[in-house]
């Protein structure tokens, strides 16, 4: 290897490391602010990165300034429920579109794919009206029912199911296995990485959703974390009390960051393989 190669890589590493610090700065700033003891420290110029003293009490204070335990429960409950139902429906539809023969299959599949072309915003007014007529506004139904089917999941899982060797399926059919058994004992076990990817991506989308939750809920009982933290901004601990606001922001971001770091491989692979949703 030539010296110039070493030099080249050295420069690249320095540039990347410096850029990484810049990308991380907003997060460091958030944590730093969240630990500042009072507004004087928050508004100090030039800013002091490591607060003195470190005010850990901002976290319980922020947590208690709004019903955050309720927000957390709502976020977890609605995201987990939607992901579980979508996983079931996704597997069922993917199986039907990959291993079952029935008339109108291609046509129906096209109907599913077309759903991917319809942005949420186009259906937001009519769906609001539909749910309001059903008396489902301001209820968990509104946060769950519209998301129970998945075109993206059907498409993704179908790709995985199509990779399953047909010999395996034929053998199971000869053994008298039902379609549900083939799905449970062959398709699903052989598609675990895809299913995990789908669950993670989908979970993060539901968890991060703001627009829909904002529109269909108007009480603290149903707000999720993203909508809750914005609601807190209007309260007494909000406004320009940036130390409390940033503590609350850390609380909102921690679960999704922890999940991302724990399951990074599936996130990154999932995004680069499916690439759906560019931000």
């Amino acid at each position: 290897m030539r010296i110039s190669d070493h030099l080249y890589r050295g420069i690249i590493f320095i540039v990347l490391a410096a850029s990484a610090v810049v990308v991380l700065l907003p997060f460091l700033w958030m944590v730093s602010t969240s630990l500042k003891p009072d507004l004087r420290a928050v508004y100090q110029f030039p800013p002091q990165w490591i607060p003195d003293p470190i005010a850990w009490e901002n976290y319980p204070k922020a947590w208690n300034s709004a019903p955050f335990s309720r927000y957390l429960f709502n976020s977890v409950f609605t995201s987990v429920t939607v992901v579980a139902i979508q996983l079931i429906n996704g597997c069922l539809c993917a199986y039907a579109f990959s291993w079952l023969k029935f008339p109108g299959r291609d046509w129906l599949f096209l109907l599913f794919l077309a759903v991917l072309m319809v942005p949420n915003e186009v259906t937001i007014v009519p769906n609001y009206v539909t749910l309001s007529r059903a008396g489902a506004l301001n209820s968990y139904w509104a946060l769950i029912v519209p998301f129970m089917a998945t075109a993206f999941g059907t498409f993704l899982i179908r790709q995985a199911f199509l990779q399953v060797p047909s010999d395996l399926v034929d053998a199971a059919v000869v053994d008298g296995a039902s379609h549900l058994q083939i799905l449970r004992h062959i398709m699903i076990p052989l598609s675990v990485p895809t299913l995990l990817t789908f669950m993670l991506l989908n979970f993060s989308w539901r968890w991060n959703d703001y627009f829909w939750v904002l529109i269909v809920t108007n009480s603290d009982l149903l707000r999720t974390l993203p909508v809750g933290v914005i609601a807190m901004r209007a309260g007494p601990e909000g406004g320009s009390n940036w130390h409390y606001m940033m503590a609350a922001t850390v609380i909102v971001l921690l679960p999704i960051l922890a999940l991302f770091i724990a399951a990074q491989r599936y996130f990154v692979e999932g995004i680069s393989r499916t690439g759906l949703r560019g931000g």
Binding site: V23, N208, V252, I256, F267
Partner: peptide, 9 residues
Amino acid sequence: TPYVTTTAA
């Protein structure tokens, strides 16, 4: 990391 974070937050 920024890509997976909650936009609202």
